[in-house]
Design a protein around this nucleic acid. Structure first.
Lengths: 236, 236
DNA sequence: ACAAAAGTGTTCCAGGTACACCCATGG
DNA sequence: CCATGGGTGTACCTGGAACACTTTTGT
């Protein structure tokens, strides 16, 4: 960055989070939204976001926003994209400063995700399929996040950050199906592919859920996975 | 982004470009650097960057920076990552504002890239292998860009944005070899894979370069590629 | 004739797809 | 004993890896 020769833009920098979760029981892909209480877009639902504070990194701001809305111990988070075109926020006209949003993408474990009520604004999971029109350019950000989620799932083990520690292969399959849509793969082929990777520990424990043969519980073997890191893995 | 409860960080927003090019003749992967004339880091080489102006989008700022250093008609450009931790720029202490850098990644055609001399600071291509220690956190940004370049090449047709319109299969092979390192694939396998994709038009023209059998000139068939867009293609 | 570069073909094997089929449990 | 879900096995095919071989040029 060198010296300017024309008036520089002044910026307000915030962080917006696309927080996904997967409800495997109901086969729903969920996104966390908050309902705005102030203008602009009062009453609209939007992605949870915040402005960045002094001494706070962008990622820390993302974690803070998340922690304000939801109590969760297991999650995956990474930076998504930065949106900063002129006029993406109507407040730009009011205050004469551009609103830049660094968006983050998160995937959280649904089972232990506890929404924090009693905050300033209502917080709620929405099925992605029934997601309303959002404030600002948040639909665009959400779409971007959804694409990233699908890609991440296919070539990285984020699913295991978010599944319970012990899970059946069917749990895993349901998880992938819910996110990627059905027909992403045959179940038995999915099984053998995953098992062949050698990153699942067989606990030899069985679990019975309703009728049918008991299912084996597996856990993700981080040590076995470590050497495969950065390798082009396929989980599809 | 909601109302704050603690002092907000103030930001200066800039754009930094990781501009790559491939010199297929000498088999070198190049990155464009400029030598800083002012403090901090006076004398150090750095990525070409600029501060964002009023009414200018981030991408426009990236294009402007590029255009100030280099005249080029064929290129590929996309956003890379946003760096905004506290203290990433020493000027933060001086001016009390945080320096946020939205980095962009570009790949330009080497043949018609003409460096613009006579600007404020020296501009020069560096072979990636002989790249010096850079100003700020630019080595980190560069490393990030290099990873992106390798990934992009493998599953998207950026190479064709940057090769001459008519090229031989060997040109294409050299290009990939230079970026991904030798041994990325056998030449004859590379040939058949690319031809089988059906996205290369045989012009039936031959070109003779020194000894050896004349090579067929191909061109990228954008129409044939269109339906394959967004599909998981492999160019490796 | 020989080297150099372009281009073709062949063999082998890993891994994906699409199924059919067997196993263990509840009702 | 049958429905339900878990789990195994197989036959087929595609596509990559390695490498031998042929073709067309310059010297």
């Amino acid at each position: 960055m060198t010296a300017p020769s024309l008036p520089l833009a002044e910026f307000v920098v915030g962080v917006d989070n696309v927080i996904f979760s997967v409800d495997t029981d109901q086969n729903r892909l969920l996104v966390l939204l908050v309902q705005r209480q102030q203008v602009p877009f009062a009453g609209y639902w939007s992605l949870p976001g915040t402005l960045v504070r002094q001494g706070e990194s962008l990622e820390a701001a993302a974690y803070r926003t998340l922690a304000e809305k939801i109590r969760v111990s297991n999650l995956y988070l990474e930076q998504l994209y930065t949106f900063g075109e002129p006029a993406r926020d109507p407040r730009e006209t009011t205050y004469g400063k551009r609103y830049l949003s660094v968006s983050y993408f998160a995937l959280v474990r649904f089972a232990d995700a506890e929404l924090i009520a009693g905050g300033e604004c209502p917080v709620q999971w929405f099925a992605l399929s029934t997601c309303p029109e959002l404030a600002f350019d948040h639909n665009k950000i959400l779409a971007y996040g959804h694409r990233r989620l699908c890609n991440k799932l296919e070539y990285s083990p984020v699913a295991f950050d978010v599944l319970p520690e012990y899970f059946t292969l069917n749990d895993l399959y349901q998880f992938y199906s819910t996110v990627l849509g059905a027909n992403f793969s045959d179940y038995s082929n999915f099984r053998s592919r995953l098992l062949k990777l050698g990153i699942l520990q067989d606990t030899h424990q069985k679990v019975i859920r309703g009728a049918g043969r008991p299912a084996t519980l597996y856990r993700f073997d981080r040590e076995a996975f470590a050497p495969l890191k950065d390798k082009p893995l396929v989980f599809v």
